[in-house]
Write a protein that binds this DNA or RNA. Structure first.
Lengths: 119, 119
DNA sequence: AAAACTGTATTATTGATTTAATACAATAAT
DNA sequence: ATTATTGTATTAAATCAATAATACAGTTTT
């Protein structure tokens, strides 16, 4: 599982995005235990403090909960996960449509371009 | 003409994006003279240096050229403008599709969501 | 000729981010 | 019991990006 952290934006933000994505798309299973902060940091090749900061953000969103001396666990609230997934998708769609619209590209042309992409 | 600069990302990057957008979508006419650095900075309510930095980026891309004591001019190379517009559109489409695909959303559902948007 | 306006260069400051080195307290594992 | 492993907190340092203030040298404009 690759992390591909670039340095064009804050590292901890990219970690939040990647972790959130993995939870929302099911790569990390609902209810299960995450790797330890230190191990995750090792995987992503970042400082443990940076990973800890990212995990703190996810806890704020309710996507993980930490048990003091046991580890971090993915939420078992699958409804929450589905809702956030949909919410994020809609958000992406709106941002994308706003951009292409501003570029002066029609809806038809946009859909045509998307149809050329492989999913 | 509003600028809507937020502080979630570097200001000069947002200026580059907005200026580029205005050139590519024809808001700023090919071949014409831009407002001065200071006037543009006043409009966008940013520091002149920040606007200058953004204009420097646009010059690197060939979208504007500066005449030392006269002003900045939009390129008259309309072909370049068209090409960059298409390039940017394709780039946005790829980035967008990459994200929704990673979220586990099908092409059909994606198009459905887009159809709900108003263009 | 003088004043105003160009883009540009220089320098300093501010602020956010990342990394680093530790430390601690609670639990799990041996 | 002892050891190792959790998440978490603290503090400091280093780095880098963004902004700001100012000055300069050349045109235009008046």
């Amino acid at each position: 599982m690759s992390w591909e952290i670039k340095n064009d934006r804050p590292v901890y933000i990219q970690l939040v995005e990647e972790l959130e994505m993995r939870i929302l798309n099911g790569t990390y299973t609902s209810g299960t235990k995450l790797l330890s902060v230190r191990d995750l940091a090792g995987e992503a090749q970042v400082n443990p403090n940076t990973m800890q900061k990212a995990l703190g953000e996810l806890e704020k969103k309710g996507l993980i909960s930490s048990k003091r001396t046991s580890g971090n666990y993915i939420t078992d609230d699958e409804k929450l996960i589905r809702n956030l997934r949909t919410e994020l998708a809609v958000c992406e769609v709106e941002a994308f449509c706003g951009k292409v619209k501003k570029l002066g590209i029609s809806k038809e042309e946009t859909i045509e371009l998307i149809n050329k992409e492989e999913f």
